[in-house]
Amino acid sequence: MAAGGDHGSPDSYRSPLASRYASPEMCFVFSDRYKFRTWRQLWLWLAEAEQTLGLPITDEQIQEMKSNLENIDFKMAAEEEKRLRHDVMAHVHTFGHCCPKAAGIIHLGATSCYVGDNTDLIILRNALDLLLPKLARVISRLADFAKERASLPTLGFTHFQPAQLTTVGKRCCLWIQDLCMDLQNLKRVRDDLRFRGVKGTTGTQASFLQLFEGDDHKVEQLDKMVTEKAGFKRAFIITGQTYTRKVDIEVLSVLASLGASVHKICTDIRLLANLKEMEEPFEKQQIGSSAMPYKRNPMRSERCCSLARHLMTLVMDPLQTASVQWFERTLDDSANRRICLAEAFLTADTILNTLQNISEGLVVYPKVIERRIRQELPFMATENIIMAMVKAGGSRQDCHEKIRVLSQQAASVVKQEGGDNDLIERIQVDAYFSPIHSQLDHLLDPSSFTGRASQQVQRFLEEEVYPLLKPYESVMKVKAELCL
């Protein structure tokens, strides 16, 4: 049975990233139509530049190519590739079939990587351009969430054990800070992308030097003109047959890092959902379990974690691919890159769409948070109580021993009897502590235990987050809708 299948058929496997999760716009960027249309555009740009620099290419040939950029006979191309065992030459023939007058000058002087690699770089750039505003929107939604809850005390956790208090907004800023680093890295790697350009079979530009009869300047002009037509500021000066596969490492490393950030955020949300302090959106008709109707599973956060793990592992592909590119190139890269580049971007696209949807509907339960604080705060307040007693004339050592005994009794009630923490009640009825009984409410005010959390939130948002989001103001209103 021949390899390949009808990918629109229910009898043929289709990647869930495309069929179930990723956005239509990201799927289109990695589609065959987008790819092969870009090949034709690159052939047109090459012909236009070659004509401008004096090669015998007519206006009629150029116009014929322009008129057929979208006229792609995919069936013919597939048949040609089956016959020739070469995808680029299959599309040269297919393009030439609908451009008979231009057929002889299509791909003039070029090698397969002229269309293959340059198209990949265009796709990487455009895919990054799709991700950047999506990530900015996630940051914006979380920034709104953090600002609104900047002063809401909550129990902090280290080692997932109760620690000092923080605020809900401050905790959210930990998430935002990681995503801001990801946004900066995505922008950097996007701006650092260079075009492969017009380089020939081993990167020496020998074929173009021959076409222009040894004119170095025209060869350099050709490279520059096509690079500018493709919208790049610069091209690699040095290439082998391909652009260095280190570029793929750079791009997928940034995406993998984004995956790590999203995994951490969504894990926190899942843990908070278990504590009943916070939940992701839950639709009115949504079913959490087929057997347990009360369940409210954090399905979206779980999906993000599941896909983020996949995204983090994909960076190993370009690392290994770059390491086995012998001399000017081997074909070890080809099949692998067809999979890992598309999957990385479709996965990143999915987790950003999902995280935006989550961040637009996060639900906080202040009463649950308050109750958990009441359970733990008495123990945390013991040092403040000791200091207040010393100020009232008591002995630190005597007070410490009193607190120690009462704390152990209260802990026994919590752990052995399943009761509430009654340390404060014990202190309130103990005559030894009568000098500070009137101060206990103040000493137990949760806001006095959150330090500068709310001020940190305000400063972080104003100095770091809002300036970073400013270039994306025009796209901030787009909502994230999930079908599944």
Rank of each mutant, 00 (worst) to 15 (best):
A206E: 05
N118K: 00
I62H: 05
T154F: 06
N353M: 10
R83G: 14
L468D: 06
M380A: 01
G288L: 02
G169P: 02
D332K: 01
T94H: 15
Y294R: 01
M89H: 05
R371T: 05
P471L: 15
S438V: 09
A480L: 15
Q408V: 08
R374A: 07
R190H: 12
M89W: 01
F212A: 06
I373V: 10
K35V: 13
E376D: 09
W175A: 05
L406A: 11
S407A: 14
F379Q: 03
I265M: 15
L135K: 07
L461P: 05
R374S: 09
L443F: 06
V92I: 06
L469G: 04
K284R: 12
K391E: 10
V247W: 09
Q409A: 12
S9K: 14
R234P: 03
E220L: 08
Q205P: 00
P10M: 13
K229Q: 08
R37G: 09
V262E: 03
D216K: 05
P467W: 07
I369E: 03
L423F: 14
Q458P: 07
L252I: 13
P162H: 09
L469F: 09
T267P: 01
H217C: 09
F460K: 00
L377G: 02
K479T: 14
R190N: 08
V247L: 13
K82L: 14
A431L: 09
K391G: 14
F345D: 03
I62V: 10
E79R: 15
G231Q: 09
P435K: 08
L165V: 12
L440G: 06
A308Y: 03
A431T: 12
D178R: 02
I139A: 08
Q397N: 13
I62G: 02
G156I: 04
A453L: 02
T202R: 01
T167E: 03
H159V: 01
K75Y: 10
M65D: 00
H97K: 13
Q164G: 02
Q210G: 12
T204H: 06
E213I: 15
G418A: 05
L42A: 04
L346C: 08
P153K: 03
G240D: 02
T94Q: 13
E463L: 12
G418M: 05
R85E: 00
L155D: 03
G96C: 05
N357R: 04
G394H: 06
K187E: 09
H310F: 06
K402I: 07
W326D: 00
D445R: 11
C399Q: 04
I72C: 10
S23V: 10
R296S: 07
M299C: 13
D422S: 14
A22K: 08
A411P: 03
R372D: 02
R20W: 00
L211Y: 10
I265P: 01
Q51R: 08
Y13F: 08
G109W: 00
H310T: 08
L255Y: 04
P471H: 15
D441H: 11
V390P: 05
L406T: 07
A102T: 08
T267M: 15
R374P: 02
R396T: 03
T350K: 06
F95T: 08
K477T: 15
D445T: 13
M89E: 00
S474H: 14
V368E: 03
F208A: 05
G419T: 07
Q161D: 00
L255E: 01
C304V: 12
L131N: 11
V138H: 11
L271M: 06
H107T: 02
R234K: 10
V414A: 04
T167G: 04
K134C: 10
L468P: 04
T382A: 08
M387E: 00
M292T: 02
E79A: 10
R374Q: 04
E280W: 00
D191L: 07
I369Q: 07
T313S: 12
C113M: 05
A410I: 02
M76V: 13
Q205V: 08
K246M: 03
R85V: 13
P24L: 10
L152I: 14
P318A: 10
T244V: 04
L132V: 13
Q456T: 05
S438P: 11
G418H: 01
G203A: 02
Y243C: 14
D87I: 00
R396M: 03
D422T: 12
T204R: 00
A291M: 02
A103H: 07
Q221K: 12
V457M: 04
E462T: 12
W45Q: 13
T154M: 12
A146S: 10
K264M: 03
V324G: 07
V368W: 02
K246A: 02
S395R: 07
E70F: 14
G5K: 15
N274G: 04
S112Q: 00
L128E: 06
G394S: 12
C483S: 13
K82R: 12
S151F: 09
Y34A: 11
Y114R: 00
N71V: 11
M316S: 11
V368I: 03
D215K: 13
Q456V: 05
E60S: 11
K295D: 00
Y21I: 00
V29C: 15
Q408M: 04
G394N: 08
T111K: 00
R171Q: 00
K170P: 01
V168H: 05
L130F: 10
F460Q: 02
I436V: 08
V219A: 06
T201W: 02
L341Y: 13
R234N: 10
